[in-house]
């Protein structure tokens, strides 16, 4: 090796450049901080109200005094919050599994297999994607009601009209997955075909692994959608409080007892918590991202 290397004399950018960079950084940060504050404000307000007594909640004070942690306990005991949560979990889990199981094979066939009529089917998916759910909701309701009469089971009032359609494919998920599957290099699939995989095997061993971020995204969207879904539960479940989900339950919270804002907020916070946790966990799944480094060029 050569003799002692001279220590590197780090060059400082000129004053004008540094000044400019500093101002840009300040501008960027102010914008982001303002946006973050705007998003956080309602959450902070809910959290603070949840810790007040009911009188405080109705007063002009923003800071709880004293802190009433027992609100959370009370919120759980005054309404069947656990029951609603369980229903929501059932709805979210079964609908999400259904969407994945039914949409992944369709998306794969649309993205990677050559067959007659593929474009027509894609068109149908796109049309279904653009159709607002409100359009089909009345005929569907009638269908479930009549089906219930025919087989002697009350679908209306149960979670089934919410869950079963998810097992029949979801246009948005099919579209999103198809777009992602299209980006998977054909070589991976051809290599698997030559190495002894049939199409189903390719789907379950290769595509699922390569498309993990997209599948995670679809699952996440579905979980959040079902968690927040208010329209369908209101339509199908209103008459049967034992099958209410949290979104529906919370909206009815005020009318169950008189308006108790502190308890309503405490319940809201309890319901929001899992969503926030899911978000933080899923963030990592996204960051893990697509590492297609095995293929280059």
């Amino acid at each position: 090796m050569s003799a002692v290397a001279a220590p590197l004399e780090r060059r400082r950018p000129p004053r004008a450049v540094r000044r400019r960079r500093f101002l840009i950084a300040v501008a960027d940060h102010s914008l982001l901080i303002a946006a973050a504050a705007a998003f956080l404000a309602p959450v902070v307000f809910i959290a603070l109200t949840a810790l007040m007594t009911n009188d405080q909640a109705l007063s002009a004070h923003l800071w709880p005094h004293p802190f009433r942690w027992s609100n959370f306990k009370e919120a759980i005991s005054t309404a069947p919050l656990l029951r609603w949560t369980l229903n929501t979990l059932i709805y979210a889990a079964l609908a999400t599994i259904g969407i994945l199981v039914s949409s992944i094979p369709v998306a794969y066939a649309l993205a990677k297999l050559r067959w007659r009529g593929r474009n027509a089917v894609m068109l149908v998916v796109l049309v279904a994607l653009m159709l607002p759910p409100q359009v089909s909701v009345v005929p569907l309701y009638v269908m479930w009601a009549k089906l219930g009469n025919a087989v002697g089971f009350h679908f209306v009032g149960s979670l089934w009209p919410l869950i079963i359609p998810a097992w029949l494919g979801d246009a948005f998920s099919i579209f999103l997955l198809r777009q992602f599957f299209m980006t998977i290099p054909e070589e991976y699939l051809d290599a698997a075909r030559v190495d002894g995989c049939g199409e189903l095997r390719i789907l379950t061993t290769v595509v699922l692994r390569l498309a993990k971020p997209a599948i995670a995204a679809v699952a996440l969207f579905s979980v959040l959608y079902t968690f927040n879904d208010f329209f369908l539960p209101l339509l199908y479940l209103s008459d049967n409080p034992s099958s209410w989900v949290v979104s529906l339950g919370l909206s009815q919270y005020r009318s169950l007892h008189q308006v108790q804002w502190n308890l309503t907020m405490a319940a809201t916070l309890l319901v929001m918590a899992p969503v926030i946790v899911v978000f933080f966990l899923a963030q990592r799944a996204f960051v893990e991202g697509v590492t297609l480094t095995g293929v280059k060029g």
Partner: peptide
């Protein structure tokens, strides 16, 4: 019973 080496190798990154 045929094996193939692809131009971009097609090694599974995961």
């Amino acid at each position: 019973d045929i094996a193939m080496v692809f131009q971009n190798y097609a090694l599974y990154p995961y």
